[in-house]
């Protein structure tokens, strides 16, 4: 455990170095936040009765989405891990007397946390400062806020487990780009990051509620504004935890299986 913690710390500090790119990221997120809010406002102004979410709830959801965008977008690929297989450095990885799955898990987790820590606060602050229809609202209640933080932490773990899983699954593919893209597009839509799940057509909503992806974004963000109330929130949090453990186990198992077949490509 101590090993993984220090590995995490090392990776985390390295990733904190990219400050200019964080600045660019923040401005992008702010811009997109305003654009999304304006698009939805225009829709609500044209036909306000048909919105499946209350406008302030929706705007809050959109701002949270922008603030935590760098943590939760599903297109994340770790070039270093993917290159390991192509350039043969996988051999070094195999020599280490540690569990490769958890090393990768820590690597991805630290990278994503480091990126988001540099970026989320300015977006949240600007969100709060904006005037009424455009801005981020305060959490519905203190207990909502607490549950939001807890589910957010679990969804970070769940996201990492899912992303580590597809790095593991595609271990034996030399050209993974296309397949990973297909997978991550589907995951991205079903997590509710492109549009909130209540806006989906009914049949897609059903699919989204069955799959694990919505527990990453949809659940915590809607708990924040009490769009999902505390009681439902706690119930769904339990499912969220179960998904996390399940995907973790699957990831470890697939890793074990794939490592047996692995071919180290020269180097």
């Amino acid at each position: 455990m101590k090993f993984y913690l220090s590995y995490f710390k090392l990776r985390f500090i390295t990733s904190l170095q990219y400050k200019t790119s964080a600045l660019a990221g923040i401005s992008t997120q702010l811009f997109f936040g305003i654009v999304y809010v304006m698009v939805y406002l225009a829709f609500y102004n044209s036909n306000s009765s048909n919105g499946p979410m209350k406008l302030p709830d929706l705007v809050t959801y959109l701002w949270l989405g922008q603030a935590f965008y760098s943590l939760f977008y599903m297109y994340y690929k770790d070039p270093e891990i993917l290159d390991l297989i192509k350039n043969g450095n996988m051999a070094y990885e195999l020599i280490r007397p540690k569990n490769i799955y958890f090393m990768w898990f820590c690597k991805i987790l630290s990278q994503r946390l480091a990126t988001v820590i540099l970026r989320f606060l300015p977006v949240i602050i600007v969100g709060f400062l904006l005037p009424n229809p455009y801005g981020l609202s305060l959490p519905y209640s203190l207990s909502n806020f607490m549950l939001f933080l807890i589910t957010l932490a679990i969804s970070t773990l769940l996201m990492t487990a899912i992303i580590t899983l597809y790095h593991v699954i595609f271990l034996n593919l030399l050209n993974e780009k296309g397949i990973v893209n297909i997978f991550s597009t589907v995951a991205d839509i079903l997590s509710g990051s492109t549009i909130p799940i209540p806006f989906f057509p009914i049949f897609l909503q059903k699919i989204a509620y069955i799959l694990p992806f919505r527990y990453i974004i949809d659940l915590p963000f809607r708990i924040y504004s009490n769009n999902i109330n505390i009681l439902n929130g706690i119930n769904q949090m339990i499912i969220q935890i179960i998904w996390f453990i399940l995907i973790l186990i699957i990831g470890c198992a697939v890793m074990k299986k794939n490592l047996k077949k692995i071919v180290v490509q020269g180097g």
């Binding site: 829709f43 036909n47 492109t194 549009i195």
Partner: peptide, 22 residues
């Protein structure tokens, strides 16, 4: 194929929003 899917996700946003708002 993956590009088609990515494109579809843009399309999907517009379709669902119009499905709700008209």
């Amino acid at each position: 194929l993956s590009q088609i899917l990515v494109f579809f996700s843009y399309y999907f946003i517009i379709l669902s929003l119009f499905d709700k708002f008209g």
